[in-house]
């Protein structure tokens, strides 16, 4: 996956809570091959009007957010289905970081495995950053994964948490499977014991 180190970019505010993965990527696009990309269908039912032209009311269509690479949302961003197409659509559209007060757990995990950084900050901080973005459309924010900080448009710095396991993978752009293969001997040894405890699982009916 692509590494994530630092990012200073225009951030788009999305005020609504519960922006679920069905909104991010409607189910009718899930069977697309990964190679075809999903950027053109991100938020498609909100981004485009019924006639296929851009909906000028949708935040990402507004000129100030043309170069947005960050979204600042509310609570429960990415709740709902496990579709990895949701982070793929964000990434393919150009979004590398989403800041919210909470995330859907599966979306959060899927994002980390694809080089999309989900940043969890307290609800009042996220709200304050959105307010600043509304006041100055097109303002930038800076995200530093190594330092685990977000610098808001007003210059204030906010620390965020991320497990060091995931932080290291993101900073280096490593997939899980490489690390897992280093534990091969451990897995095999575990499997022997597990098979003795639950022999019925390994006996094919």
């Amino acid at each position: 996956m692509e590494k994530f180190t630092t990012l200073t970019a225009v951030a788009a505010p999305m005020d609504r809570p519960n922006i679920d993965t069905d909104q991010l990527l409607p189910a009718r696009f899930l069977r697309r091959p990964r190679a075809e990309g999903f950027g053109d269908v991100l938020f498609i039912d909100q981004r485009l009007k019924d006639d296929g032209t851009p909906n000028p009311d949708f935040v990402l269509n507004q000129p100030a957010y043309k170069d947005a690479h960050i979204i600042v949302a509310d609570r429960n961003f990415g709740g709902g289905s496990s579709r990895e197409g949701a982070p793929w659509a964000l990434l393919d559209y150009g979004i590398r970081c989403v800041v919210a007060s909470s995330f859907g757990d599966i979306f959060y995990n899927n994002s980390l495995k694809n080089g999309l950084l989900p940043v969890r900050l307290p609800e009042d901080v996220v709200k304050a950053i959105r307010d600043q973005l509304h006041d100055k459309p097109g303002a930038t924010i800076s995200v530093d994964l190594e330092k685990q900080t977000v610098i808001a448009p007003d210059g204030t710095s906010h620390a965020f948490d991320i497990e060091s396991f995931r932080k290291t993978s993101l900073l280096k752009g490593l997939d899980d499977i490489g690390m897992t293969f280093e534990h091969e001997a451990e897995i095999s040894a575990f499997e022997d014991g597990f098979g003795k405890r639950h022999p019925w699982l390994f006996a094919r009916t």
């Binding site: 496990s82 995990n109 899980d176 897992t180």
Partner: peptide
């Protein structure tokens, strides 16, 4: 529930 990258990981490991 898990995403496609994790399903791949489970299949392989």
């Amino acid at each position: 529930g898990i995403g496609a990258s994790d399903v791949f990981h489970v299949l392989a490991t």
